[in-house]
Design a protein around this nucleic acid. Sequence first.
DNA 1: GAAGACATGTAAGAGGTTACATGATTGT
DNA 2: ACAATCATGTAACCTCTTACATGTCTTC
Lengths: 187, 187
Amino acid sequence: MNTLSYALLSLIARAPLSGYDLLQQMKQRVGPMWPVRHSQIYPELARMEEQGLITYEVVEQVERPAKKVYHLTDAGRQALRQWVTEPTQANTLRDEFILKAYSLWLADPQQALARFREQQQEHIQRRGEHEATLARLRQSWGAELDQPRSPLFSSAIALRYAIGYEQHYLAWLQQVIEALEQAHPGA
Amino acid sequence: MNTLSYALLSLIARAPLSGYDLLQQMKQRVGPMWPVRHSQIYPELARMEEQGLITYEVVEQVERPAKKVYHLTDAGRQALRQWVTEPTQANTLRDEFILKAYSLWLADPQQALARFREQQQEHIQRRGEHEATLARLRQSWGAELDQPRSPLFSSAIALRYAIGYEQHYLAWLQQVIEALEQAHPGA
DNA sequence: GAAGACATGTAAGAGGTTACATGATTGT
DNA sequence: ACAATCATGTAACCTCTTACATGTCTTC
């Protein structure tokens, strides 16, 4: 059992989904905390089915190709619940841009500034997307977002995490940009 | 050329180092942004030497086993400089604890609170370590930390990033803990 | 003489990315 | 016809982790 399989269980626990649906949802919802490709999803689903965590039924569709819709077994639900309440060792982030910042002293300050501003745009964009998603949830579900037993609460805190992350990233970028500008006025 | 090799170049660019030294420095300095094991370092150094990015000399020591001390070639320095000033595609974080938060609705609130408080301790600890390191740098080097052309500037901004990250993480943990406590008073 | 830091490697396997491959169905 | 979306898979390769393996030198 790897983390990916729990990520998939997390989504199937909310509603039965096909591999294709899972791919879309991983990109939209879980994407910020666990990116994934379809080439990883399909073999993983097969393994989980073998292990009895999920089962599927083939659903014929009128206007689309048939699909395998997976849902949790009791064992799957239990495995997920177990994993969620287990201690987690805090991860170390692996961020290439920060790694580059560590060698910023080697770079041409003008180019460095350009790169930092690029990142700024990127992270502003992402923050905006997360904020929009959270606003949409709030509009659709209102106070349910504040009920810890609701899946919506979980969605909301994950989104708030992502927004906070972008916020911190932007603050840091801004800080460095100002330091670079001060050292090199007129860039 | 993978990211790890650039991480190693980043350190060798500041001072010639052995594989063992690199391991220590990756843990202490670059650790927060790029964790690594010795079993990855040694083969990678061999590959980089083949590619002409680094060279080494065997240094005999009186009170320690001999070691291979690596230093950059011109090609290595150029490759590093090139990489630093290239655009970087912003990474997606991969955080298991946040993933678990996404399924928090399945968890027993008491246990959830316990896990969140564990994380709090962990991140408080980390923030403290980074702050101490930054304070030490500041004490040793003073205003040099503010000169973008100095390696110390790069070290300082990387540390500030790490501190900001822990800060944001702690703020988020606190937020969720308060929400859980409010829903379950007396936990 | 045992433990611990210093020092350097290899091997097996898990996890993840990129590329290859196929086919249905809808809209233009 | 062609592109786009829906839908599911396999294969090759790279990266990273875990475990295996060896040897030096110092301190207790």
